[in-house]
Nucleic acid binder design. Structure first.
Lengths: 194, 194
DNA sequence: GTTAACTCATACACGACTGTTCGAGTTAGG
DNA sequence: CCTAACTCGAACAGTCGTGTATGAGTTAAC
């Protein structure tokens, strides 16, 4: 019986290992969405059986890893001041979240593959709402175009970030250049008036 | 010995089956990049062994399927008149190639996963050049912005198309709406002057 | 210090996929 | 019609993945 009934009674070293496993899962799945449990356990410096002691299945682990990344994202977004000029706010947003998005886009793909349909979208709702609100505010202030739906513009931001992240990963795009390219491109796509 | 030494001596029914297998491969891998050989063989109405008689390994099959789609793309692009206003040309380009891109983006992913690094980019060079030339012409004529590299703008076109294709596949985006959204967005991203 | 919690290596059952072999049946093509 | 080409199902070997069981060793916690 390696799975205690209540988290509060969990020993400190066990809790520590759970953290290491989650760290490793985020790192490995962020690199390769098909990373195996063995791979993750090894990266965490933990036996495979120990991992299964804390996470009953790979799916549960993936979901936990996604939840952790999304919590990080939520925290990061909460710390940003997005109340000023929507264009500046979008630049700040991209500049700050770029790294996190780039590292977790593959994790998102992993989650899409192993979690029930809609579950990812559901978990992603929190951070996504903040972005969506920024876009809508820009539209309301007449800065962003209104002939395309806000949901689409939000999607475009995701598309470009994800694509750029993939190209950075394969070395086809300079890591330091990416944030500026993404910002300028998405801004141009969102701006009202041509 | 099911593999003849020369294609010219291949029997007609065998040639026919090769076509059916390639069709099925494009369809299956376009739906799921991890589609198995059994799945493809079944979709082609052919035994798995027969398939291996024509394609020595899964990788070779994936490459052949990709080559076929790229040839289709090349042919499609060659039939388009992209010499007029770059903006109109881009709209025509997107409108015509949207369906093909949407159906083969997963196939591209499959190829990325199983082929040696760089091979996909190599095979993709043909059709990609046409798009790239259009973008560069637009830049040279002062219609498209020049503060971002043409290669980046080409990438953005791919990102948005691929993302939209994925969302159409999951039902989050209306199939009939997609081409217009993609065109307008990419045009806005490429246009000079803000 | 004692105990319960925890870790870990080994090993197993199970399923999925790839690629190959065999032998028998079918068919195109001269 | 005759032969070589082709097809096919069944079965096999090998790999890799997940998830479970065991049992012995380690360590936190009271």
């Amino acid at each position: 019986m390696t799975r205690p009934s209540a988290k509060s009674t969990r020993r400190a070293d066990a809790q520590h290992n759970v953290e290491r496993i989650l760290d490793a899962a985020v790192a490995c799945l962020g690199r390769d969405p098909d990373a195996s449990v063995s791979e993750i356990a090894q990266a965490a410096g933990v036996g495979r059986v120990t991992l299964y002691g804390h996470f009953p299945s790979r799916d549960v682990l993936v979901e936990a890893a996604l939840a952790r990344v999304l919590a990080d994202g939520e925290k990061l977004l909460a710390g940003l001041d997005l109340t000023g000029d929507p264009q500046d706010a979008l630049r700040v947003l991209v500049g700050s979240s770029w790294l996190l998005i780039a590292q977790s886009s593959a994790l998102l793909e992993a989650a899409q593959a192993s979690l029930p349909p809609g579950r990812v979208h559901e978990l992603h709702a929190g951070p996504a709402r903040r972005v969506d609100q920024l876009i809508r505010r820009g539209q309301a202030e007449g800065i962003f175009r209104t002939d395309l739906p806000a949901s689409w513009l939000t999607s475009v931001l995701h598309y470009v970030m994800k694509g750029a992240a993939a190209d950075v990963a394969t070395g086809q795009l300079d890591r330091t250049e990416a944030p500026r390219l993404v910002s300028e491109t998405v801004l141009a796509a969102c701006r009202a008036g041509g």
